[in-house]
């Protein structure tokens, strides 16, 4: 499967590159743009990005492998990220994560992101999401949820069609 950049992506990337006096600086933003459109970043996408930014593929690949938000494989249609860090943990984040895993047939004790067999949900613990006053907090895709009770969690899952 080769990576095919759409004209829209091409235009967006050209705009991003124009924000910096050095092309390489755009790499993180370009990878964000690719991931937004395709859901993940393939090795072909890495090659394309490197060419676009006049870099070696390794320069792009080393970024892809460092930043936790960048993905080298597809994830579920709905990505559930539950904040794990102290204030949320004090507010019941572990119970919330457990609740999601149980509800969706995943193993709450397993490390790292897990995707349901039907590919609909990915559940993952993430570090502090910077909203500690309304713990526990979580995200589904780009949408942010605060003070998530188990009841609210069920409603969120039900809302994912």
């Amino acid at each position: 499967m080769s990576f095919q950049a759409t004209p829209e992506l091409e235009a967006e990337v050209n705009e991003l590159i124009s924000h910096y006096p050095v092309k390489r600086a755009a790499s993180l933003m370009v990878l964000h743009a690719i991931q937004e459109k395709f859901g993940w970043i393939s090795s072909d996408a890495v090659q394309w990005t490197a060419k676009k930014l006049e870099l070696q593929p390794i320069n792009v690949f080393e970024i892809l492998t460092f930043y936790p938000m960048l993905r080298q494989e597809p994830q579920g249609k709905y990505a559930i990220k539950v904040c794990r860090t102290l204030s949320c943990a004090l507010g019941g984040a572990y119970e919330l994560h457990h609740h999601f895993c149980e509800k969706l047939g995943l193993d709450a004790h397993k490390h790292g992101p897990q995707t349901t067999k039907d590919g609909k949900f990915t559940v993952e613990f993430v570090e502090c999401l910077a909203s500690c006053g309304t713990a526990p907090v979580m995200m589904v895709g780009e949408k942010f949820y605060e003070g998530v009770s188990h009841k609210k969690a069920d409603e969120i899952v039900a809302g994912c069609k």
Binding site: Y20, M29, L31, H32, F66, M69, V126
Partner: peptide, 8 residues
């Protein structure tokens, strides 16, 4: 310009 991080 806005520059986004990626979870680090």
């Amino acid at each position: 310009h806005v520059h986004r991080g990626a979870g680090a």
